[in-house]
């Protein structure tokens, strides 16, 4: 995934910046220079190719192209309504479950297009986990059952195996030490931040390859948010993480790559450092310097 390819969609896009050709020239040249200082190239886990999405007749995403690196964290950022949540929901085919919503294009996960007609969206969601804005544990279930829910849904019956995976997942979500003595207590009895980590554990129990996080800290206080961010650093060692955030500091703290979106278009995508320090697009520069958004 050379940086040049990464930036190509931007110049192709007919966005607010698309018509200004001098800027395009500059961005291509900058890419050539940044390429040399790139660390050794890592594998692309998810390729987003020409994704368009609609709510009814309103187009929410316009021809998005993006390569997501394996075992790294990628942040989608942008002002409210820019389509970042819609985009992340397109990556596990959750978007189309909203009445009236549809999407087309390709999302290629390890060589398989998840929008292919032969693919069952249910199976895709087992490989791509998701964590939502508001913690949403199942209210009638205990902590243990919450984490085991996905396994049970997919027909895992082996109690010993379930127990092992639940423990592993809670450890993975940094919650084990806090709840190991009260696994049979209701999940709703936990604090907001713990609930969100419970939801992360629930997603981890499915042993996903990609974890989508849709503004996972927007409903949490700063300390709980910090813990989630720490967790992202841990998890990305073995997991491809895509995180939506409207919080630029958070993107800067957790993400290796960042994508800036505006009005349903991908404005700029690159290494987080580059996006924040040397943005190529004027809009990105305005956003990261806090002039709007």
């Amino acid at each position: 995934m050379p940086a040049k390819e990464t930036i190509k969609p931007v110049s192709e896009a007919t966005g607010p910046m698309g018509e200004s050709s001098p800027l395009k020239e500059i961005s291509v040249r900058t890419v050539e220079t940044t390429k040399r200082i790139d660390e050794p190239q890592r594998r692309s886990k998810v390729s987003i190719k020409g994704i368009n999405a609609w709510f009814g007749s309103k187009q929410a995403l316009k021809n998005i192209n993006l390569e997501i690196e394996e075992n790294a964290a990628t942040a989608f950022m942008g002002p409210s309504g820019c389509g970042k949540t819609t985009l992340i929901r397109c990556l596990n085919r959750m978007h189309e479950m909203t009445p009236g919503a549809k999407a087309n294009g390709q999302v290629i996960l390890d060589g398989i297009d998840i929008y292919d007609k032969s693919i069952d969206p249910v199976v895709i969601k087992r490989r791509i986990g998701m964590v939502f804005q508001k913690p949403n544990p199942f209210p009638t279930m205990s902590i243990f059952d919450n984490v085991a829910a996905g396994l049970k849904l997919n027909g895992v019956k082996d109690k010993k195996l379930i127990k092992e995976i639940v423990e592993e997942s809670l450890e993975g979500a940094g919650l084990w030490e806090e709840v190991k003595n009260e696994l049979d207590k209701p999940g709703m009895g936990l604090s907001g931040g713990q609930q969100q980590r419970l939801c992360i554990a629930r997603a981890l129990a499915m042993q996903p390859e990609v974890l989508l996080m849709d503004e996972p800290t927007s409903a949490l206080d700063p300390i709980a948010s910090f813990k989630i961010e720490e967790l992202v650093h841990q998890l990305k060692k073995h997991l491809t993480i895509i995180i939506v955030t409207h919080n630029m500091q958070q993107a800067a703290r957790v993400a290796d790559h960042a994508a800036f979106m505006y009005l349903g278009e991908m404005i700029e995508y690159g290494k987080t450092l580059q996006i924040f320090q040397y943005p190529k697009q004027e809009l990105t520069e305005k956003f990261v310097s806090g002039k709007f958004g």
């Binding site: 849904l153 629930r202 499915m206």
Partner: peptide, 28 residues
């Protein structure tokens, strides 16, 4: 809440699985 349904769907639940895991317990 839809977030309950989506929680189940995101774990790879079928429509019936979602009813059983998320909707019925919440509404029982």
């Amino acid at each position: 809440p839809n977030s309950q349904r989506e929680a189940a769907y995101s774990l790879g639940a079928t429509r019936w699985g979602t009813l059983r895991t998320a909707v019925f317990p919440y509404a029982r």
